[in-house]
Design a protein around this nucleic acid. Structure first.
Lengths: 112, 112
DNA sequence: GCAATGGTTAAGTAGATACTTGACTTAAGG
DNA sequence: CCTTAAGTCAAGTATCTACTTAACCATTGC
């Protein structure tokens, strides 16, 4: 497997799992403990912990432990990195289409 | 009803692989055959075919075969679906922060 | 102190993933 | 017709993934 941008790999991989997206959506509304994140999910706490670890490895989530409670919060800059990757490709695609359109039927207003 | 926008699971999973992102980036610049897509990738043609199938299953790529060559092209609407999912979460996150900010230090201009 | 709560670690497992090779099919092109 | 290019199909395999259970550790609250 190529390894050209490990972080995007991890971010998209993290987002590819529905349970992890549920966690992300919960954290959008504010920080939460692991057991709070676990509540709506049909799996063991240990399973949720593993999802949190995947999210944290991707940079989408940060967490810190105070007392016996680990509080997780979202890291929006990582979310933006992923969004930007997609947006840049879409933009480039549209730009190419424009160039192609001009070539196929030149706009009189644009030509001298 | 047709499953017109296949699940985000498949889209994000497709984007999580660097070889597949290379394929997507190539297709942004216009349609290409499978062996053209394969050229920069250090793997067998059959391996590339499998990546193309994953991309097609996700809705990110469409392809059609003419003669003996299969031509692949990108499907930007699927790319946009993924982008939108992220953008909506980021926006919601920012909105929440605003509300929180107002609550913590009310802006005199906004209060009666 | 002790029970309950919240989390962590380790080990196991079924199924998915990312490849491979090799045997085929189809279709250009000379 | 024969060769080569492009792709397809099937099978095999090593590794990864998404869980599980069970034992364990660390705080909190009575």
């Amino acid at each position: 497997m190529l390894d050209q941008s490990p972080s995007l790999d991890l971010v998209f991989h993290a987002l590819a799992d529905p349970s992890r997206r549920v966690i992300v959506e919960r954290l959008i509304d504010g920080p939460a403990s692991v057991s709070e994140l676990a509540r709506p999910l049909p799996m063991s706490l240990a399973g949720v912990m593993q999802h949190v670890q995947v999210l944290e490895a991707s940079g989408l989530v940060r967490s810190e432990k105070v007392g016996r409670v680990r509080t997780c919060r979202i890291e929006p800059s990582t979310l933006r990195d992923a969004e930007r990757w997609i947006a840049e490709r879409r933009t480039e695609w549209a730009r190419r289409l424009d160039r192609l359109g001009e070539f196929l039927s030149p706009d009189p207003k644009e030509s001298s």
